[in-house]
Design a protein around this nucleic acid. Structure first.
Lengths: 200, 200
DNA sequence: CTCTTTCGATACATCAATGTATCCGATACA
DNA sequence: TGTATCGGATACATTGATGTATCGAAAGAG
C-alpha cells in the first residue's frame, strides 16, 4: 500500500466531481466505450485532473462503485432498522423504495457485475457489499417472516435474505428494459411478497 | 429493407466462424472493449471478411444474440414439451439443465441487456425472446403447478412464468461472480422450487 | 475447362485516445 | 502578505482502431 495523497479540500472536490461525471457517462455509454476524456469533459476538467487523481478508468470505476454501493447499503440498513410497522408488506415497501428507482445506479451496477466477472478483485468487493446487505436483512426477516410457512429450502433467514437479493437483482434487469420505475417497483413488490409469504 | 446478399456456401461459413469467434471475444473482453480486428483475428480472418459481412460491431453483436437466444429458446421449449415426469421437481430439473451452465452465454446475455438498455431496437428483440420463453412456460406451469397454493399475485400461469424468468435472470448474475456451475444450478433449483411450491 | 462473379486480403489515409513531461496558477500556511 | 507546494492545464509523441479503395484468388455457372 502506497500512502494516499494528502487529500486537501480542493483535491476532494475534484475527485467528487469526477466521480459524479463518471456516473453519468458510464451509465450513458458503458464502461468499455467510455474514454477518459469524456469523463473529464463532463466534469469540466482536462485529463490533467484525471491523471492526478486516478491511474486508470478501471480505478475510477472501482472508486465509484465503492462509493455508491456504500450509500445503498446504508439506505437499506436504515430502512430496515428504523421505526415503523414490522409486517411483511411494510418491510417490503421500505426495502423496495430504498433499493430501486435509480436507473443510473442500475446501469452502473450491471456494468460492475460484468466487470467483476472478469476481475476477481472487483468481484470480491461486490461480494462484500452483497454480504453487507444480506446481513442487514437477516435480523429483520427473522423478526417478521413466519419461516415455517415457507418451502423447505428457504427456511433459514440467511438463505431467505440471499433469495431476496437474487430476486431483486433479477428484477433489476427488467428496469433496464422498461424504464418505467413504477412498473418495476410493483413487480419487485409482488415478487418479494410472494417470496416471503409462503402462502396468502 | 435492402435485399440480403445471396449467401453462398462460403459466405455462410465465414459468417458462422465470425459469430463463433465473436462469442468468445465478447465474453472475454466485453462488447465495448472489443475491436473488430480482435474478432477477425480470433476467427482467422482479416477485416476484409468482416466488412464484407457486417456493417458494424453492433450489427454482429445483434446477429450473435439472435442466433444464440434462438437456440436457448428452442432448448427450453423442447425440455418442457418433451416426454417425462410431469411434476414440479422434474420440470424444474429439465428447465434448469436446459437454461444454465454456459458461462460464455451468460456473459453475452448480460452484455446484451446493457446494450438493450441503450438501444430500443435491441431491447425489442430481447423482449421478443423473453416472451417466447414465457409462452413456452405457460402451458407447462398450468399443467403442473397448483396455483391455489401460491400467494395471490402469482396465481396466473403467465405471471408465474414471468417470475420464473426474472428469478432465473437474477441467479444468472450469481454465475458471473461464482464460476462454479454446480453451485449455481443448485441455487437456481432451490429458488424455482420455492417459487412454484407455495409451501412444502 | 473457361468465364464471370463473389469474397476476403492488402494497403492506405484518417482519427481518436493514451500517457507523459512540463508549466503556471491556485491554495494553504507562516 | 509573501512564499512554497500542490494540482490541474497544455503540448507532444505514440499507438491502435477505423473505413475505404483496390486487388487477386476461389467458387459457381455454362
Amino acid at each position: 500500500m502506497t500512502a494516499p495523497p494528502p487529500a486537501t479540500r480542493r483535491r476532494r472536490a475534484t475527485r467528487a466531481r469526477l466521480l459524479d461525471a463518471a456516473a453519468t457517462v458510464f451509465a450513458e455509454r458503458g464502461l468499455g466505450r467510455t474514454s477518459i476524456e469524456e469523463v473529464c469533459e463532463a466534469a469540466g476538467f482536462t485529463r490533467g485532473a484525471f491523471y492526478s487523481n486516478f491511474a486508470s478508468l478501471d480505478e475510477l470505476f472501482f472508486a465509484l462503485y465503492e462509493q455508491r454501493a456504500g450509500r445503498v447499503a446504508e439506505q437499506v440498513a436504515n430502512a430496515l432498522a428504523g421505526p415503523g410497522e414490522r409486517t411483511i408488506p411494510a418491510l417490503v415497501e421500505r426495502v423496495v423504495s430504498a433499493l430501486s428507482v435509480d436507473r443510473e445506479w442500475t446501469m452502473i451496477k450491471a456494468e460492475y457485475f460484468l466487470h467483476a466477472a472478469r476481475h476477481p478483485d472487483a468481484a470480491a468487493a461486490l461480494q462484500r457489499h452483497r454480504h453487507a446487505v444480506v446481513e442487514a436483512l437477516v435480523p429483520a426477516l427473522r423478526d417478521v417472516v413466519d419461516l415455517t410457512a415457507l418451502p423447505g429450502k428457504m427456511r433459514t433467514p440467511h438463505t431467505l435474505a440471499r433469495a431476496v437479493v437474487t430476486v431483486h437483482d433479477g428484477s433489476t434487469l427488467d428496469l433496464l428494459l422498461d424504464p418505467d420505475p413504477d412498473a418495476h417497483r410493483q413487480w419487485l413488490r409482488a415478487l418479494l411478497t410472494a417470496l416471503l409469504e409462503g402462502r396468502d
